[in-house]
Each structure stands twice: as structure tokens, then as C-alpha cells.
Design a protein around this nucleic acid. Structure first.
Lengths: 148, 148
DNA sequence: TTGGATGCAAAAGTTTTGCACGGTT
DNA sequence: AACCGTGCAAAACTTTTGCATCCAA
């Protein structure tokens, strides 16, 4: 997706198309895993884009409101993480050692949601599933140390 | 579970049995939903227990390490929440309106974990599932307002 | 007695806010 | 021109830490 698409996307949501917002969408879209506001800020700095951290927070907040971006709160990280909303229903597999996050795009929970709705009389809007484990690389390292 | 049990539990984990820790376990055990450190602190204050907030944080941290307590990071709350570990594998159903949290104790994901392990070569340690929706009470209120 | 637990104060880290100014529509 | 977005600084909020003291084992 290129910058013109981002610009259109923003306008379609009733937002002004600003350079910062486009760059932020671009950064998140290119990231293969969710990142924190501070990291977005640093990447912008690295690109020699002068921006204030509060602007990054405000932009992320606005983009989340418009569902262009998804905000995550993950165990073990006190910061919120943000990812580009690819309009796919995804889940996350997180390595407990290196904190790498893999996005998984298969969901086994459609039926479960229906059952749950019946049982609880809730109107179910969605869910978040996070799976924790150790990635192959970290498993190997820990095997060598005799830790696992 | 009474206070003697908590004392034993702490000792079995290699922790000293202190008044504060016992009270904190008691508060969490009695709470029907996960609560923040600040709330634990306030409940202690209400019980006329003089305690420092940093002690609450340290105690919760220690109890989590020993798996007596579970720490949660939930979307929409920048604070961590803590719940008594009932040694059941549970999930959470959260009302997007009133933020009420229901603990659900049926898990549809055993098979899924196995499949995922095979596919990714991760050593899966566990998962967290949070379902979002609107509770019957909030649905009714919103219906009246014509919002849903 | 000894090491771990606590209180206190201070710092660190994350996120939000008020206000003046600037840019998009 | 109007309104929304941004920079800056400050504050708010959550969590952690250093150190002296206290308490459970």
C-alpha cells in the first residue's frame, strides 16, 4: 500500500491527511510485529522526521479510534503496542524469552463465541487471543544451557 | 480459603508469611474480578491496614512469580490487573461499556495449541483469551437510547 | 541472628493535557 | 477562513528502586 492509499484512507475516515499520520501508517504497515509509540517515534527520528512524542500518541490514538490501527496490551510489557489493522482477524504468538511476536491468522473461535453469547447473553463484539511459548531459536539456546 | 491456608501457601512457596501478603491474597481471593494494585491498596486502607503502595506492588510481583496470583494486561486499561490464581485455566469476558469482567472457565483451545506447536515449532506454554462484548445490562440501556 | 519484607522518598517510565501556533480542507 | 493537527512544556498516572529499618523464621 503506498502513500496515496494512506492519504485516501485517512480522508475516508474523516481525518486530515497529514505527513505524520501517513508516515506512522507506513511504519506500522511495514512492521512485521506490533510496536510501541516510543518505537514509532524513534523510527521517525531515524528517518529525520521531526516530530513530538505527544503527536505520535495522539495520532495513534486517533488511528485506533478509526480502526486503522489496533492497540494491544501484552503481558510483560507495561507499554501499549500498536499494529496496522490489516482487516484480517489475527492472533499473536509471543516468545517468552526474546519477546518476538508472530501474527497468526487462523482463528478457532467462531463457534465458541456463539456458544458463549448464548450462555451469557452478552453481545459479543470480538476477542483477543495471545499464545505464549518459546520460539525455536530460544528453545535451542536454552537447551544448550540445560535450562529447559 | 482461610488465613491459615494462605499462610501455609506462602510458606510452601518459600515466602515469609506476612500480614500484608495474607491480606492481599484474601482480597484477591474474595474479588470476583481482577483488580489493579491501586484498588488493592485502597481496600487495605478501608480495612484500616496501614501499608505503602510500593509494598503492594512488591507483594503482587512476588505472588505472581510464585504463581499464586495472575497479572493481566487488558485493552483499555493502562494499569496491570491482578487476580487470585484459582488453579483453573480461565478466560475473561469484558463488557466494553461498564468494563465488568466475567471469568469463564471453559477453554476451547487445547487442540489448537497442539496444532500451532506443530506448525510453528514453538514450545507452547499457555495462552490468554479475552472476549469483548456488551453485557445484558448495558445492552438494555443502549437499546433504550437507540445506540445499538 | 539473619535474610527477607516494608516504609519512605525519589526516580523512572508511560501517557495525557492545555495552550499557542501551523497546516489541510 | 475555519477547524483540526502539532509542538512544547508540564502534569498525571503507573510502576520501580535505594536505603534504612523492621520482622518472621
Amino acid at each position: 500500500m503506498n502513500k496515496f492509499d494512506f492519504s485516501d484512507k485517512l480522508k475516508m475516515c474523516g481525518l486530515k491527511s497529514t505527513k505524520h499520520r501517513i508516515v506512522i501508517l507506513d511504519i506500522l504497515e511495514k512492521s512485521n510485529q506490533p510496536i510501541a509509540a516510543e518505537q514509532v517515534f524513534q523510527i521517525m527520528r531515524d528517518k529525520d522526521i521531526v516530530v513530538n512524542l505527544s503527536t505520535v500518541y495522539r495520532a495513534l490514538d486517533t488511528l485506533c479510534e478509526k480502526k486503522l490501527v489496533i492497540k494491544l496490551n501484552i503481558y510483560g510489557d507495561s507499554r501499549a503496542l500498536f499494529e496496522f489493522n490489516r482487516m484480517l482477524h489475527t492472533h499473536h504468538l509471543i516468545c517468552l524469552n526474546c519477546k518476538k511476536i508472530i501474527v497468526i491468522d487462523r482463528c478457532p473461535l467462531e463457534e465458541y463465541e456463539k456458544t458463549l453469547a448464548k450462555e451469557t447473553d452478552y453481545l459479543i463484539e470480538g476477542h483477543k487471543l495471545v499464545v505464549y511459548g518459546y520460539c525455536p531459536q530460544c528453545r535451542e539456546k536454552q537447551l544448550k544451557k540445560g535450562l529447559v
